[in-house]
Amino acid sequence: MKYDPIKRSLGKVFNRTPFLRIIFYKLLDLLLLRSWHIRKALRKVGPLNSNQSILDAGSGFGQYVYWMSRFFKNSTILGVDVKSEQIEDCNRFFQQIREEERVQFQYADLTKFEDKDRFSLILSVDVMEHIEEDQQVFHHFYHSLKDGGTILISTPSDQGGSDAHEHDHEEDAHGFIDEHVRDGYGIQDITEKLTKAGFHSIDASFSYGKAGKISWKLSMKYPILMLGFSQLLFVFLPIYYLVVFPLCLVFNFIDLIKTHKSGSGLIVVAKK
């Protein structure tokens, strides 16, 4: 299943005005369990001192940049991505809301991008599972952080993070999300790679336990499958979400407050 055609379809609806886009961001923050875990981890990082720089490595359509621009009010934020159309779109949106002096986006290949000792915080959400040369990227992250800086990574785990373990047929071996170059990381695996890059105080924990997996299927997997079958079914999504949205909120809350022995997601925080 490829996400990009679905993302573009949704973008056409919600990018018509800045107001609609902000509403879309807020709905995603409520609906997507990943966002719950990331916001919890970012709050633990706490407000940064004035004039600190943040990197969103793989910024996509800017959801987390927008949230961080509100939470880290005195910081500057750079979002980088390999998709030029998303860079242009995000720059346009943040210009429309008059944040272009503090928030900017640019094209960057993370296997090559490094800005030595610039950032106090690096956020990387659902990016590393797409990159074969992950050790190289971790080294770039390390050198781009200031001393004492923090990196926060959200990525699928090897406990079924790409949904690959739900398939029995060889042709489905890449799972539900076929853009991934790996099914996910084990805690020991990603800890060793970050340590090799120079990081310390590494805290890796599972997310998307039993409740989280149910929420993900209801909130993302089934709607994406539906739209993948026919985009005409888009008109039924509001009715669908009216039914499942309250359930997803409950499952998200349960997943957020529990400590998981296993899960299909990983939240990793480390220090330089």
Rank of each mutant, 00 (worst) to 15 (best):
V45E: 12
L227K: 13
S120I: 03
G175N: 03
D134Y: 11
V181L: 02
I22Y: 06
D163G: 15
Q96M: 14
S53K: 15
H37N: 03
T155L: 02
V235P: 04
K44R: 13
K73A: 13
S35R: 09
C248L: 01
G265D: 00
F141N: 09
I6C: 07
K193Y: 03
F245R: 02
F245I: 02
L27V: 10
K2E: 15
D147G: 05
L32E: 01
D158W: 00
V250M: 10
I267F: 01
D115A: 15
R34G: 00
I122H: 07
I23F: 10
Q104W: 09
G186C: 01
T111S: 14
N51Q: 15
S230L: 09
V103N: 02
V181T: 07
P238M: 02
E133M: 09
V127N: 03
C90F: 02
I77N: 03
G62M: 09
V250K: 06
W67G: 06
A108G: 11
V65D: 07
K7G: 10
V80N: 07
Q96S: 15
F141Q: 11
S50K: 15
S264V: 08
W216I: 05
D255L: 06
S205H: 05
D203V: 05
Y240P: 08
P223Q: 05
I153K: 06
Q159R: 12
P238E: 03
H140G: 12
S264D: 08
S35F: 12
Y240S: 08
G149C: 06
Q52I: 03
R118G: 07
I38K: 00
R39M: 11
D168C: 13
Y222K: 10
T76I: 14
I214M: 08
L152C: 08
L227G: 12
K146H: 03
I257S: 07
L27A: 14
A173E: 14
M226K: 09
L145A: 04
V80D: 11
K2Y: 09
G160L: 04
P18S: 08
G148N: 07
E100Y: 07
I122Y: 02
L249K: 09
I202A: 04
T150R: 05
G263L: 06
L242D: 03
S144K: 06
G160V: 08
K2L: 12
V65H: 04
H130K: 00
S201E: 15
F72V: 12
G149V: 05
V269W: 02
D189T: 04
E88Q: 14
K83M: 11
D168R: 14
F253G: 08
P18L: 04
F251R: 04
E166S: 11
L20S: 14
F105G: 10
I122C: 10
D147V: 10
G198Q: 01
N252R: 00
K40H: 11
S215P: 02
F93R: 11
F14D: 06
A164K: 12
I151Q: 07
I87C: 12
S154C: 00
E192I: 09
I177N: 10
H139P: 01
D117V: 10
Q231D: 12
